[in-house]
Design a protein around this nucleic acid. Structure first.
Length: 245
DNA sequence: TGGAATGTTGGAAC
DNA sequence: CGTTCCAACATTCC
């Protein structure tokens, strides 16, 4: 569920609920005033990075699915929902194993849309600059930095690094500007391909690096490691992905 | 079957 | 007091 493109898919799947009034709001989320939601109309659904946003006239409900979060539309799962919204004619939205928070500030004050790779306002030049603010970081950590590339997750990280032939352990400050630009551009490009392939149910079939054992380029054995400060699983080919140090 | 995984956070430690 | 690190959370799958 977690990466940015999946949130865009969810937004698309629930768009018929826009303008509908919540007849009842329940769940076991802690930071939510269920009474305040009841009777309110959904103004819009938005996404920011890995955040899914349900906008009401005076506040927004923010849902983060973390690693295990799921949802059910006009359906239920065999679990207690963190947040359950009931509508007319038995329609409902259910969210499970996610972090739910209430945002009372205007969204433009909370979110810098220029950092969201799925947003049309994404500012690639700003991202390229921000990447080297901490020049000693590994590129694998930089791509996962939600303050630079909101929405990029571990799959996108692995695929982009493979596509641009960069070793995840590379020091960001040592990567040439042109290559850094290419990485930022592909973070966006691949995210939209992720979106298209996931919608078609063929995302995993297009993985070139993630969870692969052999490099599709040269047949070399893929390395599996947990590099950087984030220690997230990285799959890469030491033959074709250049290490900048 | 136990460990690992599309992720973040909060509090301890320095 | 700021920064860094790691355990905790929680569910499903192989």
């Amino acid at each position: 569920m977690p990466e940015g493109p999946s949130m865009v898919i969810l937004k698309d799947e629930v768009k018929a609920f826009t303008g509908k009034k919540v007849l009842a709001a329940t769940g076991n989320a802690k930071e939510v005033n269920f009474k305040a939601i009841t009777g309110q109309k959904i103004v819009a659904f938005k996404t920011y990075g890995k955040h899914f946003l349900i906008c009401f006239p005076k506040f927004t409900i923010r849902i983060h699915f973390l690693l295990f979060g799921t949802y059910a539309i006009n359906d239920v799962r065999n679990a207690q929902p963190r947040l359950s919204l009931k509508f007319a004619r038995g329609q409902q939205l259910n969210f499970y194993t996610c972090a739910v928070k209430t945002i009372v500030e205007p969204l433009d004050e909370v979110y810098d849309w220029r950092k969201d790779v799925m947003h049309k306002k994404f500012d690639e030049a700003a991202a390229v600059e921000a990447m080297v603010k901490k020049p000693k970081r590994m590129v694998c950590d930089v791509l996962l930095d939600q303050d630079i590339f909101a929405g990029v997750g571990n799959i996108i990280k692995n695929e982009v690094l493979f596509r641009k032939k960069v070793n995840p352990k590379s020091t960001i400050g040592k990567i040439p500007l042109a290559k850094r630009k290419a990485l930022a551009a592909d973070a966006v490009k691949y995210s939209f391909e992720f979106l298209k392939w996931k919608k078609q149910g063929v995302l995993a079939a297009h993985w070139k690096a993630h969870k692969q054992t052999t490099c599709p380029r040269d047949g070399h054995k893929m390395t599996k490691a947990y590099p950087g400060q984030t220690k997230r699983r990285a799959y890469f080919c030491t033959l074709c992905q250049q290490l900048y140090t």
